[in-house]
């Protein structure tokens, strides 16, 4: 397996696994979003969706473990790249001209990624733990919808969600088109289309996720 180590630790290999885990997370976000949007169907629809997921718990658990591994590889490689890339230029320029030659999204992947990671921890603590009856704030009688609604009545908590989702959008906007470049999938005809799809996807995902806390904040928790 020495070839795998060589590949995994090469500059292109690190990016390849960044892209591979990235696209897996992009696909996961779509399923997550579809489930979330059932909140707009009211308590019955959402609680039924969650109950259905409960009924296939073993499968959900397996997917969760795979997802956690994907996240870990993505985070591990991201941090490794960031540290190594900092080392590649020990002395910074006195004048930073990067705004003239690159987008802010592409330069701030580690910053947006870190905030999204902090968000993920907070998010798992609130919802994943409660939905799985871990810790003190377990949910009784399958009242998932009511729990979500109550959680978002806190303007600070909801505000954090909205900010995190905007930054997730920034992260995806670069990540989406970037993974095609990393895999070597560029084409005169299709790359401009991929760039548009990437931006549309980022805006739609960020907006749709961010609307949920805003919606419950405005409704006042019921």
């Amino acid at each position: 397996m020495s070839w795998f180590n060589t590949f995994f630790n090469s500059s292109i290999g690190k990016k390849f696994f960044m892209g591979l885990t990235g696209i897996s997370l992009i696909l996961f976000l779509k399923f997550h979003l579809v489930n979330n949007l059932s909140l707009f169907g009211g308590p019955e629809v959402f609680n039924t969706v969650v109950k259905n997921l409960e009924s296939i718990k073993p499968i959900v658990r397996v997917i969760e473990v795979i997802l956690a591994l994907i996240f870990l590889i993505h985070i591990f490689n991201g941090l490794r790249l960031w540290l190594e890339n900092k080392k590649a230029r020990p002395q910074k320029y006195a004048v930073n001209g990067s705004s003239k030659n690159s987008t802010v999204y592409s330069r701030t992947m580690v910053q947006t990624g870190t905030i999204v990671f902090i968000f993920l921890i907070v998010h798992l603590r609130t919802f994943w733990m409660s939905f799985n009856n871990i810790g003190v704030n377990g949910i009784t009688d399958h009242k998932y919808y009511e729990f979500v609604a109550a959680s978002f009545t806190d303007p600070i908590y909801s505000g954090f969600y909205v900010i995190a989702m905007i930054l997730l959008g920034f992260h995806l906007n670069h990540g989406f088109q970037s993974l095609f470049q990393t895999f070597g999938w560029t084409h005169k005809k299709y790359t401009p289309i991929i760039n548009i799809i990437g931006t549309v996807y980022s805006v739609v995902v960020a907006t749709a996720f961010a609307i949920i806390p805003i919606y419950f904040l405005m409704k006042g928790g019921n």
Partner: peptide, 27 residues
């Protein structure tokens, strides 16, 4: 360092070398 696809290189290249070359190398 490793490439993070900011494409600053292409913007500053005096010969206008395209980043599609990087994609070809990755491939």
């Amino acid at each position: 360092g490793s490439c993070t696809n900011t494409y600053a290189c292409e913007a500053e290249c005096p010969k206008g070398i395209s980043v599609t070359n990087i994609a070809r190398m990755n491939r």
